[in-house]
Design a protein around this nucleic acid. Structure first.
Lengths: 225, 225
DNA sequence: TAATAATATTGTTACATAAACAAAAAAATC
DNA sequence: GATTTTTTTGTTTATGTAACAATATTATTA
Protein backbone atom coordinates (compact mmCIF):
# COMPACT_ATOMS: atom_id res chain seq x y z
CA UNK A 1 0.00 0.00 0.00
CA UNK A 2 2.75 2.45 0.88
CA UNK A 3 6.01 3.02 -0.86
CA UNK A 4 8.53 2.08 1.79
CA UNK A 5 11.40 3.74 -0.01
CA UNK A 6 10.10 7.28 0.00
CA UNK A 7 10.36 8.90 3.37
CA UNK A 8 9.32 12.20 4.76
CA UNK A 9 11.87 14.42 6.30
CA UNK A 10 10.45 13.51 9.62
CA UNK A 11 12.57 11.59 12.04
CA UNK A 12 12.17 10.07 15.45
CA UNK A 13 14.90 10.42 18.06
CA UNK A 14 14.96 8.37 21.22
CA UNK A 15 16.36 9.23 24.63
CA UNK A 16 17.11 6.08 26.60
CA UNK A 17 17.95 6.69 30.24
CA UNK A 18 19.25 4.23 32.77
CA UNK A 19 21.07 4.08 36.05
CA UNK A 20 24.55 2.60 35.84
CA UNK A 21 27.47 2.92 38.18
CA UNK A 22 25.51 5.11 40.52
CA UNK A 23 24.76 7.73 37.90
CA UNK A 24 22.07 8.59 35.40
CA UNK A 25 23.22 7.67 31.91
CA UNK A 26 21.94 8.08 28.37
CA UNK A 27 22.49 5.81 25.39
CA UNK A 28 24.41 7.50 22.57
CA UNK A 29 25.58 6.46 19.14
CA UNK A 30 28.58 7.83 17.33
CA UNK A 31 27.45 9.10 13.95
CA UNK A 32 28.91 7.31 10.94
CA UNK A 33 27.70 9.82 8.35
CA UNK A 34 27.51 13.51 7.72
CA UNK A 35 26.29 15.78 9.06
CA UNK A 36 27.99 15.67 12.46
CA UNK A 37 30.01 12.60 11.43
CA UNK A 38 31.94 11.36 14.46
CA UNK A 39 29.80 13.26 16.94
CA UNK A 40 27.63 11.48 19.49
CA UNK A 41 23.87 11.50 19.04
CA UNK A 42 20.78 9.86 20.47
CA UNK A 43 19.48 7.03 18.26
CA UNK A 44 17.23 8.28 15.50
CA UNK A 45 16.03 7.70 11.99
CA UNK A 46 13.44 8.52 9.38
CA UNK A 47 9.78 7.69 9.72
CA UNK A 48 8.50 5.33 7.05
CA UNK A 49 5.27 5.84 5.14
CA UNK A 50 3.59 2.76 6.55
CA UNK A 51 4.28 3.20 10.25
CA UNK A 52 2.99 5.52 12.89
CA UNK A 53 5.36 7.49 15.10
CA UNK A 54 5.39 4.99 17.96
CA UNK A 55 6.20 2.19 15.56
CA UNK A 56 8.91 4.21 13.90
CA UNK A 57 10.54 4.96 17.25
CA UNK A 58 10.50 1.31 18.19
CA UNK A 59 11.89 0.14 14.87
CA UNK A 60 14.64 2.75 14.78
CA UNK A 61 15.70 1.92 18.30
CA UNK A 62 15.85 -1.77 17.47
CA UNK A 63 17.81 -1.18 14.28
CA UNK A 64 20.35 1.12 15.83
CA UNK A 65 20.89 -0.38 19.24
CA UNK A 66 19.23 -3.78 19.18
CA UNK A 67 17.12 -2.60 22.10
CA UNK A 68 13.65 -4.05 21.90
CA UNK A 69 10.42 -4.33 23.74
CA UNK A 70 10.44 -1.27 25.96
CA UNK A 71 7.81 1.34 26.66
CA UNK A 72 8.53 4.51 24.72
CA UNK A 73 6.67 7.72 25.43
CA UNK A 74 6.41 10.64 23.07
CA UNK A 75 8.33 13.56 24.49
CA UNK A 76 8.10 16.59 22.22
CA UNK A 77 8.48 17.52 18.58
CA UNK A 78 11.40 19.74 17.66
CA UNK A 79 11.06 21.67 14.44
CA UNK A 80 13.48 24.55 14.34
CA UNK A 81 14.33 25.25 10.70
CA UNK A 82 18.02 25.36 11.54
CA UNK A 83 18.23 22.31 13.78
CA UNK A 84 19.54 20.29 10.83
CA UNK A 85 22.39 22.01 9.00
CA UNK A 86 21.52 20.71 5.53
CA UNK A 87 17.83 20.01 5.10
CA UNK A 88 14.63 20.72 6.97
CA UNK A 89 14.13 17.83 9.33
CA UNK A 90 11.47 17.85 11.98
CA UNK A 91 11.98 15.27 14.71
CA UNK A 92 9.53 13.70 17.07
CA UNK A 93 11.45 12.81 20.22
CA UNK A 94 10.65 9.80 22.41
CA UNK A 95 12.07 8.72 25.72
CA UNK A 96 12.23 5.69 27.95
CA UNK A 97 13.68 4.59 31.27
CA UNK A 98 15.10 1.12 31.28
CA UNK A 99 16.99 -1.26 33.52
CA UNK A 100 20.55 -1.45 32.34
CA UNK A 101 20.48 -5.20 33.00
CA UNK A 102 17.64 -5.60 30.53
CA UNK A 103 19.51 -4.60 27.43
CA UNK A 104 22.55 -6.03 25.81
CA UNK A 105 24.45 -3.54 23.78
CA UNK A 106 26.59 -5.12 21.16
CA UNK A 107 29.85 -3.99 22.54
CA UNK A 108 31.06 -1.65 19.86
CA UNK A 109 32.83 1.58 20.70
CA UNK A 110 30.18 3.40 18.67
CA UNK A 111 27.28 2.67 20.99
CA UNK A 112 27.73 3.50 24.61
CA UNK A 113 26.27 4.93 27.79
CA UNK A 114 27.23 8.43 28.86
CA UNK A 115 26.62 10.20 32.13
CA UNK A 116 24.04 12.92 31.63
CA UNK A 117 26.08 15.05 34.00
CA UNK A 118 29.05 14.88 31.66
CA UNK A 119 27.90 14.65 28.06
CA UNK A 120 30.25 14.84 25.10
CA UNK A 121 29.50 17.36 22.33
CA UNK A 122 26.29 16.21 20.69
CA UNK A 123 24.93 16.37 17.15
CA UNK A 124 21.97 18.55 16.19
CA UNK A 125 19.86 19.81 19.11
CA UNK A 126 20.25 16.54 20.98
CA UNK A 127 21.52 18.23 24.09
CA UNK A 128 18.28 20.16 24.29
CA UNK A 129 16.28 17.00 23.71
CA UNK A 130 18.07 15.15 26.51
CA UNK A 131 17.58 18.06 28.89
CA UNK A 132 13.90 18.11 28.12
CA UNK A 133 13.64 14.38 28.77
CA UNK A 134 15.20 14.87 32.20
CA UNK A 135 12.67 17.53 33.03
CA UNK A 136 9.84 15.27 31.97
CA UNK A 137 11.25 12.34 33.92
CA UNK A 138 11.31 14.39 37.12
CA UNK A 139 7.73 15.42 36.60
CA UNK A 140 6.75 11.80 36.06
CA UNK A 141 8.60 10.73 39.15
CA UNK A 142 6.51 13.03 41.28
CA UNK A 143 3.35 11.42 40.04
CA UNK A 144 4.04 7.71 39.83
CA UNK A 145 6.81 5.31 40.73
CA UNK A 146 8.77 5.40 37.52
CA UNK A 147 11.67 3.87 39.36
CA UNK A 148 10.50 0.34 38.72
CA UNK A 149 11.50 0.89 35.13
CA UNK A 150 15.05 1.54 36.22
CA UNK A 151 15.60 -0.98 39.00
CA UNK A 152 16.59 -4.59 38.68
CA UNK A 153 13.88 -7.15 39.19
CA UNK A 154 14.82 -7.49 42.84
CA UNK A 155 16.07 -4.44 44.63
CA UNK A 156 16.59 -2.96 48.06
CA UNK A 157 14.83 0.14 49.29
CA UNK A 158 18.18 1.85 49.47
CA UNK A 159 18.69 1.19 45.76
CA UNK A 160 15.23 2.54 45.06
CA UNK A 161 15.98 5.67 47.05
CA UNK A 162 19.27 6.13 45.20
CA UNK A 163 17.39 6.00 41.91
CA UNK A 164 15.01 8.70 43.04
CA UNK A 165 17.83 10.83 44.36
CA UNK A 166 19.78 10.55 41.11
CA UNK A 167 16.81 11.61 39.04
CA UNK A 168 15.66 14.38 41.32
CA UNK A 169 19.17 15.59 41.94
CA UNK A 170 18.72 15.90 45.68
CA UNK A 171 18.95 13.68 48.72
CA UNK A 172 15.89 12.41 50.53
CA UNK A 173 15.17 11.48 54.13
CA UNK A 174 15.49 7.73 54.65
CA UNK A 175 12.56 7.31 57.00
CA UNK A 176 10.13 9.40 55.02
CA UNK A 177 11.17 7.76 51.79
CA UNK A 178 10.64 4.27 53.16
CA UNK A 179 7.27 5.13 54.61
CA UNK A 180 6.02 6.27 51.23
CA UNK A 181 7.84 3.64 49.23
CA UNK A 182 6.24 0.85 51.24
CA UNK A 183 2.81 2.19 50.31
CA UNK A 184 3.53 1.84 46.60
CA UNK A 185 0.98 -0.31 44.86
CA UNK A 186 2.49 -3.50 43.55
CA UNK A 187 5.57 -3.44 45.75
CA UNK A 188 6.19 -6.92 47.13
CA UNK A 189 8.37 -7.69 50.12
CA UNK A 190 10.52 -10.77 49.52
CA UNK A 191 12.07 -13.17 51.99
CA UNK A 192 15.41 -12.69 50.35
CA UNK A 193 18.27 -10.44 51.23
CA UNK A 194 21.00 -8.77 49.27
CA UNK A 195 24.38 -10.43 49.56
CA UNK A 196 26.37 -7.79 47.77
CA UNK A 197 26.91 -5.56 50.74
CA UNK A 198 29.77 -6.53 52.99
CA UNK A 199 27.78 -5.52 56.05
CA UNK A 200 24.19 -6.02 57.09
CA UNK A 201 22.19 -7.43 54.17
CA UNK A 202 19.12 -5.50 53.08
CA UNK A 203 15.73 -6.99 52.34
CA UNK A 204 14.86 -7.36 48.68
CA UNK A 205 11.64 -6.15 47.09
CA UNK A 206 10.11 -6.50 43.66
CA UNK A 207 7.18 -5.12 41.73
CA UNK A 208 4.36 -7.43 40.88
CA UNK A 209 2.37 -6.88 37.70
CA UNK A 210 2.72 -3.23 36.95
CA UNK A 211 -0.44 -1.31 36.33
CA UNK A 212 0.81 2.13 35.59
CA UNK A 213 -2.20 4.24 36.33
CA UNK A 214 -2.42 7.64 34.81
CA UNK A 215 -1.99 9.93 37.74
CA UNK A 216 -1.58 9.59 41.46
CA UNK A 217 0.33 11.30 44.16
CA UNK A 218 4.05 10.78 44.46
CA UNK A 219 3.56 7.07 44.89
CA UNK A 220 0.76 4.85 43.80
CA UNK A 221 -0.83 3.66 46.96
CA UNK A 222 -1.88 0.23 47.92
CA UNK A 223 -5.55 -0.30 48.51
CA UNK A 224 -6.45 0.10 52.12
CA UNK A 225 -7.54 -3.09 53.82
CA UNK B 1 17.09 31.42 2.27
CA UNK B 2 14.19 29.01 2.25
CA UNK B 3 11.79 28.25 -0.52
CA UNK B 4 8.47 29.32 0.92
CA UNK B 5 6.48 27.50 -1.71
CA UNK B 6 7.63 23.99 -0.98
CA UNK B 7 6.12 22.59 2.15
CA UNK B 8 6.49 19.37 4.00
CA UNK B 9 3.53 17.22 4.61
CA UNK B 10 3.63 18.34 8.16
CA UNK B 11 0.79 20.36 9.51
CA UNK B 12 -0.08 22.09 12.73
CA UNK B 13 -3.57 21.88 14.17
CA UNK B 14 -4.77 24.11 16.94
CA UNK B 15 -7.35 23.44 19.64
CA UNK B 16 -8.74 26.70 21.00
CA UNK B 17 -10.87 26.31 24.11
CA UNK B 18 -12.98 28.90 25.83
CA UNK B 19 -15.89 29.24 28.17
CA UNK B 20 -19.01 30.65 26.59
CA UNK B 21 -22.61 30.45 27.69
CA UNK B 22 -21.69 28.44 30.72
CA UNK B 23 -20.04 25.67 28.75
CA UNK B 24 -16.63 24.69 27.49
CA UNK B 25 -16.39 25.36 23.77
CA UNK B 26 -13.91 24.77 21.00
CA UNK B 27 -13.29 26.83 17.88
CA UNK B 28 -14.05 24.95 14.66
CA UNK B 29 -13.85 25.76 10.97
CA UNK B 30 -15.99 24.24 8.28
CA UNK B 31 -13.68 22.79 5.63
CA UNK B 32 -13.91 24.39 2.20
CA UNK B 33 -11.85 21.74 0.40
CA UNK B 34 -11.50 18.01 0.10
CA UNK B 35 -10.90 15.85 1.94
CA UNK B 36 -13.73 16.17 4.44
CA UNK B 37 -15.19 19.14 2.57
CA UNK B 38 -18.08 20.53 4.57
CA UNK B 39 -17.05 18.79 7.78
CA UNK B 40 -15.96 20.74 10.84
CA UNK B 41 -12.30 20.74 11.83
CA UNK B 42 -9.95 22.51 14.19
CA UNK B 43 -7.88 25.19 12.46
CA UNK B 44 -4.77 23.81 10.78
CA UNK B 45 -2.35 24.19 7.93
CA UNK B 46 1.01 23.25 6.52
CA UNK B 47 4.29 24.15 8.15
CA UNK B 48 6.49 26.34 5.98
CA UNK B 49 10.16 25.78 5.47
CA UNK B 50 11.27 28.95 7.19
CA UNK B 51 9.26 28.74 10.38
CA UNK B 52 9.45 26.57 13.45
CA UNK B 53 6.41 24.73 14.76
CA UNK B 54 5.34 27.39 17.24
CA UNK B 55 5.51 30.04 14.56
CA UNK B 56 3.58 27.89 12.13
CA UNK B 57 0.84 27.33 14.68
CA UNK B 58 0.56 31.02 15.37
CA UNK B 59 0.52 31.97 11.69
CA UNK B 60 -2.05 29.34 10.76
CA UNK B 61 -4.33 30.37 13.57
CA UNK B 62 -4.10 34.00 12.53
CA UNK B 63 -4.77 33.20 8.87
CA UNK B 64 -7.74 30.96 9.51
CA UNK B 65 -9.47 32.66 12.38
CA UNK B 66 -7.86 36.07 12.75
CA UNK B 67 -7.01 35.09 16.31
CA UNK B 68 -3.69 36.56 17.30
CA UNK B 69 -1.35 36.98 20.16
CA UNK B 70 -2.24 34.07 22.40
CA UNK B 71 -0.09 31.53 24.18
CA UNK B 72 -0.07 28.24 22.33
CA UNK B 73 1.36 25.11 23.87
CA UNK B 74 2.47 22.05 21.95
CA UNK B 75 0.12 19.20 22.75
CA UNK B 76 1.13 16.02 20.91
CA UNK B 77 2.12 14.89 17.46
CA UNK B 78 -0.27 12.58 15.65
CA UNK B 79 1.20 10.45 12.90
CA UNK B 80 -1.05 7.54 12.10
CA UNK B 81 -0.50 6.62 8.43
CA UNK B 82 -4.25 6.53 7.87
CA UNK B 83 -5.23 9.69 9.68
CA UNK B 84 -5.34 11.54 6.35
CA UNK B 85 -7.33 9.66 3.68
CA UNK B 86 -5.22 10.76 0.72
CA UNK B 87 -1.64 11.48 1.64
CA UNK B 88 0.63 10.93 4.60
CA UNK B 89 0.27 13.96 6.80
CA UNK B 90 1.76 14.13 10.25
CA UNK B 91 0.33 16.85 12.43
CA UNK B 92 1.73 18.60 15.42
CA UNK B 93 -1.19 19.65 17.59
CA UNK B 94 -1.22 22.79 19.74
CA UNK B 95 -3.74 24.05 22.20
CA UNK B 96 -4.71 27.22 24.03
CA UNK B 97 -7.26 28.50 26.50
CA UNK B 98 -8.55 31.96 25.78
CA UNK B 99 -11.11 34.46 26.99
CA UNK B 100 -13.96 34.54 24.60
CA UNK B 101 -14.10 38.32 24.99
CA UNK B 102 -10.53 38.59 23.72
CA UNK B 103 -11.15 37.39 20.22
CA UNK B 104 -13.35 38.67 17.50
CA UNK B 105 -14.42 36.04 15.06
CA UNK B 106 -15.41 37.45 11.74
CA UNK B 107 -18.93 36.35 11.90
CA UNK B 108 -19.12 33.84 9.12
CA UNK B 109 -21.12 30.65 9.45
CA UNK B 110 -17.93 28.74 8.66
CA UNK B 111 -16.08 29.65 11.84
CA UNK B 112 -17.83 29.04 15.08
CA UNK B 113 -17.68 27.82 18.64
CA UNK B 114 -19.00 24.38 19.50
CA UNK B 115 -19.66 22.83 22.87
CA UNK B 116 -17.12 20.11 23.52
CA UNK B 117 -19.90 18.11 25.10
CA UNK B 118 -21.79 18.10 21.83
CA UNK B 119 -19.41 18.10 18.90
CA UNK B 120 -20.50 17.71 15.29
CA UNK B 121 -18.81 15.03 13.16
CA UNK B 122 -15.21 16.11 12.76
CA UNK B 123 -12.64 15.76 9.98
CA UNK B 124 -9.55 13.56 10.33
CA UNK B 125 -8.69 12.53 13.88
CA UNK B 126 -9.70 15.88 15.27
CA UNK B 127 -12.04 14.38 17.79
CA UNK B 128 -9.13 12.49 19.30
CA UNK B 129 -7.01 15.64 19.30
CA UNK B 130 -9.69 17.62 21.11
CA UNK B 131 -10.14 14.88 23.69
CA UNK B 132 -6.43 14.82 24.32
CA UNK B 133 -6.41 18.59 24.80
CA UNK B 134 -9.13 18.29 27.43
CA UNK B 135 -7.12 15.72 29.32
CA UNK B 136 -4.06 17.95 29.23
CA UNK B 137 -6.08 20.97 30.34
CA UNK B 138 -7.33 19.12 33.41
CA UNK B 139 -3.82 18.12 34.32
CA UNK B 140 -2.68 21.71 33.96
CA UNK B 141 -5.54 22.95 36.07
CA UNK B 142 -4.45 20.79 38.95
CA UNK B 143 -1.05 22.37 38.89
CA UNK B 144 -1.57 26.05 38.21
CA UNK B 145 -4.42 28.50 37.84
CA UNK B 146 -5.05 28.16 34.14
CA UNK B 147 -8.40 29.75 34.69
CA UNK B 148 -7.06 33.27 34.29
CA UNK B 149 -6.64 32.45 30.62
CA UNK B 150 -10.34 31.82 30.36
CA UNK B 151 -11.88 34.50 32.53
CA UNK B 152 -12.66 38.05 31.61
CA UNK B 153 -10.33 40.71 32.90
CA UNK B 154 -12.57 41.29 35.89
CA UNK B 155 -14.41 38.34 37.32
CA UNK B 156 -16.19 37.08 40.41
CA UNK B 157 -15.04 34.12 42.43
CA UNK B 158 -18.22 32.36 41.46
CA UNK B 159 -17.31 32.74 37.80
CA UNK B 160 -13.86 31.40 38.53
CA UNK B 161 -15.32 28.41 40.31
CA UNK B 162 -17.67 27.76 37.40
CA UNK B 163 -14.69 27.70 35.04
CA UNK B 164 -12.96 25.11 37.17
CA UNK B 165 -16.07 23.04 37.48
CA UNK B 166 -16.66 23.08 33.74
CA UNK B 167 -13.14 21.93 32.99
CA UNK B 168 -12.95 19.34 35.71
CA UNK B 169 -16.45 18.14 35.08
CA UNK B 170 -17.43 18.08 38.72
CA UNK B 171 -18.75 20.48 41.31
CA UNK B 172 -16.59 21.94 44.04
CA UNK B 173 -17.24 23.12 47.57
CA UNK B 174 -17.72 26.90 47.68
CA UNK B 175 -15.87 27.51 50.91
CA UNK B 176 -12.90 25.31 50.11
CA UNK B 177 -12.65 26.74 46.63
CA UNK B 178 -12.63 30.32 47.86
CA UNK B 179 -10.04 29.60 50.49
CA UNK B 180 -7.65 28.26 47.90
CA UNK B 181 -8.57 30.75 45.20
CA UNK B 182 -7.80 33.68 47.47
CA UNK B 183 -4.29 32.34 47.98
CA UNK B 184 -3.58 32.43 44.27
CA UNK B 185 -0.54 34.52 43.46
CA UNK B 186 -1.42 37.57 41.45
CA UNK B 187 -5.09 37.63 42.34
CA UNK B 188 -6.16 41.18 43.13
CA UNK B 189 -9.29 42.14 45.03
CA UNK B 190 -11.05 45.11 43.44
CA UNK B 191 -13.41 47.62 44.96
CA UNK B 192 -15.90 46.97 42.24
CA UNK B 193 -18.89 44.71 42.17
CA UNK B 194 -20.69 42.85 39.46
CA UNK B 195 -23.93 44.42 38.32
CA UNK B 196 -25.11 41.65 36.14
CA UNK B 197 -26.76 39.59 38.83
CA UNK B 198 -30.25 40.62 39.75
CA UNK B 199 -29.56 39.90 43.40
CA UNK B 200 -26.62 40.58 45.67
CA UNK B 201 -23.64 41.85 43.60
CA UNK B 202 -20.40 39.91 43.93
CA UNK B 203 -16.98 41.40 44.39
CA UNK B 204 -14.80 41.55 41.30
CA UNK B 205 -11.22 40.30 41.12
CA UNK B 206 -8.51 40.44 38.49
CA UNK B 207 -5.09 38.98 37.90
CA UNK B 208 -2.12 41.28 38.01
CA UNK B 209 0.92 40.55 35.89
CA UNK B 210 0.85 36.84 35.38
CA UNK B 211 4.02 34.99 36.12
CA UNK B 212 3.11 31.46 35.26
CA UNK B 213 5.64 29.51 37.25
CA UNK B 214 6.42 26.01 36.14
CA UNK B 215 4.80 23.90 38.78
CA UNK B 216 2.98 24.42 42.01
CA UNK B 217 0.15 22.87 43.87
CA UNK B 218 -3.39 23.39 42.65
CA UNK B 219 -3.05 27.13 43.00
CA UNK B 220 0.00 29.31 42.91
CA UNK B 221 0.25 30.78 46.33
CA UNK B 222 0.94 34.27 47.37
CA UNK B 223 4.10 34.89 49.31
CA UNK B 224 3.51 34.74 53.02
CA UNK B 225 3.86 38.05 54.75
C1' DT C 1 34.27 -15.05 71.01
C1' DA C 2 34.06 -10.31 71.83
C1' DA C 3 34.62 -5.79 69.84
C1' DT C 4 34.07 -3.02 65.78
C1' DA C 5 32.28 -1.13 61.66
C1' DA C 6 28.97 -0.47 58.33
C1' DT C 7 24.51 -0.53 56.78
C1' DA C 8 19.48 -1.41 57.51
C1' DT C 9 15.63 -0.45 59.97
C1' DT C 10 12.19 1.93 62.75
C1' DG C 11 8.66 6.15 65.21
C1' DT C 12 7.13 10.60 66.81
C1' DT C 13 6.11 15.30 66.51
C1' DA C 14 4.94 19.36 64.28
C1' DC C 15 3.16 21.48 60.38
C1' DA C 16 0.58 22.03 56.14
C1' DT C 17 -2.94 20.73 53.21
C1' DA C 18 -7.40 18.77 51.93
C1' DA C 19 -12.21 17.49 52.83
C1' DA C 20 -16.50 17.85 54.92
C1' DC C 21 -19.87 20.48 56.72
C1' DA C 22 -24.26 25.14 57.38
C1' DA C 23 -25.45 29.56 58.73
C1' DA C 24 -25.47 34.48 58.28
C1' DA C 25 -25.11 38.79 55.52
C1' DA C 26 -26.16 41.74 51.67
C1' DA C 27 -28.63 43.56 47.97
C1' DA C 28 -32.54 43.54 44.62
C1' DT C 29 -37.25 42.83 44.00
C1' DC C 30 -41.90 42.60 45.26
C1' DG D 1 -40.73 45.80 55.21
C1' DA D 2 -40.88 40.97 53.81
C1' DT D 3 -39.05 37.83 50.43
C1' DT D 4 -35.82 35.95 47.44
C1' DT D 5 -31.52 35.07 45.63
C1' DT D 6 -26.79 35.14 45.75
C1' DT D 7 -22.55 36.13 48.25
C1' DT D 8 -19.77 35.48 51.94
C1' DT D 9 -17.61 33.38 55.94
C1' DG D 10 -15.23 29.43 59.82
C1' DT D 11 -14.45 25.14 62.23
C1' DT D 12 -13.44 20.46 62.65
C1' DT D 13 -11.40 16.35 61.13
C1' DA D 14 -8.64 13.67 58.44
C1' DT D 15 -4.75 13.13 55.67
C1' DG D 16 -0.35 13.92 53.99
C1' DT D 17 4.27 16.09 54.41
C1' DA D 18 8.60 17.47 56.71
C1' DA D 19 11.83 17.27 60.14
C1' DC D 20 14.19 14.93 63.32
C1' DA D 21 18.11 10.27 65.82
C1' DA D 22 18.51 6.03 67.91
C1' DT D 23 18.61 1.02 67.63
C1' DA D 24 19.13 -3.49 65.28
C1' DT D 25 21.56 -6.54 62.45
C1' DT D 26 25.16 -8.64 60.11
C1' DA D 27 30.04 -9.20 58.47
C1' DT D 28 34.47 -8.42 59.68
C1' DT D 29 38.31 -8.09 62.61
C1' DA D 30 40.96 -8.44 66.68
Amino acid sequence: MFNEIKTHEITVDIVILTIKNNSLQVLLIKRQNEPFKGKWAIPGGYVRMSENLDEAAMRVLKEKTNVDNIYLEQLYTFGDPLRHPISRVITCAYFALIRSEDIEITSTPDIDWHKVSNLPPLAFDHKEIINYSLKRTRERLEMCPVAYQLLNEKFTLTEMQKAYELIMGKSLDKRNFRKKALQTEGLVELNEFSKTSSKRPARLYKFETIKLNSKRAHFIKKEKK
